[in-house]
């Protein structure tokens, strides 16, 4: 019993890192994705071209490869870009998830009916006012479900940083497994991931509920 408790406590220490990575990624990639999407629908080529390149490269290559590239590859090319392990991981995750959010938000913005822009326009609103007051609030409601999916994937993706030797949930449980020849740490890790994701599902469910007042 104490063994299980100790093991769980040890693995939960790793959960701190997992959660930090999770939170940092969302806090930065959501606004970045949002800005990127606004840039993409602006129709200005100086914005749409680089953004298009960015999202297709990032979404077209494995996250694991990107982790290796940022941690091992970048410093070989540019020595100044040598990051501490966790920083490298967080940067990679932010860049990676922002690309997905750009596409999710862009799809959300473009799903808003043209009539909404026209109604705003005949009231005398500028493009900016139309986006801020009319289009983006409706977009937020529509993107909530896909954003929730990404957040859940993110919880699981954090396990990838094990390859950089960062002591998060998975690495800590693996350590115990090889030390004590028991698989219970993996079960504990699985339960922790489940609980985290259950919490997320609940949270997003609440948010969707709040938006249900219209439509």
């Amino acid at each position: 019993m104490t063994y299980l408790l100790d093991t769980t406590t040890y693995i939960l220490q790793g959960a701190g890192i997992t959660l930090r990575l999770f939170a940092l990624t969302l806090i930065f990639s959501l606004p970045l994705g949002f800005l990127g999407a606004v840039g993409k629908v602006s129709g200005r080529r100086v914005l749409t071209l680089p953004l298009g390149l960015y999202t297709s490269v990032v979404r077209g290559t494995p996250l694991l490869l990107q982790l290796f590239f940022v941690y091992y590859g970048l410093p070989l090319m540019i020595p100044a870009l040598r990051f501490e392990r966790f920083t490298a991981a967080a940067l990679t995750f932010i860049i990676n998830y922002a690309a997905y959010f750009v596409e999710i938000f862009r799809g959300g913005i473009q799903s808003i009916d043209r009539g909404q822009y026209e109604a705003a326009r005949v009231l005398g609103m500028t493009y900016r006012q139309t986006m801020v007051r009319i289009v983006l609030p409706q977009t937020l409601k529509r993107v909530l479900p896909p954003v929730a999916n990404e957040a859940i994937t993110l919880v699981k993706d954090t396990a990838l940083v094990v390859v950089l030797g960062i002591g998060e949930i998975l690495r800590n449980s693996k350590e115990v497994v090889s030390r004590d020849f028991t698989i219970s740490p993996f079960v504990i890790a699985g339960v922790i991931y489940l609980v985290l994701n259950y919490g997320l599902v609940w949270l997003f469910g609440r948010m969707e509920q709040r938006y249900r007042v219209y439509e």
């Binding site: 009916d113 009539g115 909404q116 026209e118 109604a119 005949v122 609030p137 409706q138 409601k141 439509e215």
Partner: peptide, 12 residues
């Protein structure tokens, strides 16, 4: 001012 066939009210 203009009024459209399908209203275009702001649903939110």
């Amino acid at each position: 001012g203009m009024v459209f066939q399908n209203f275009n009210l702001f649903p939110h």
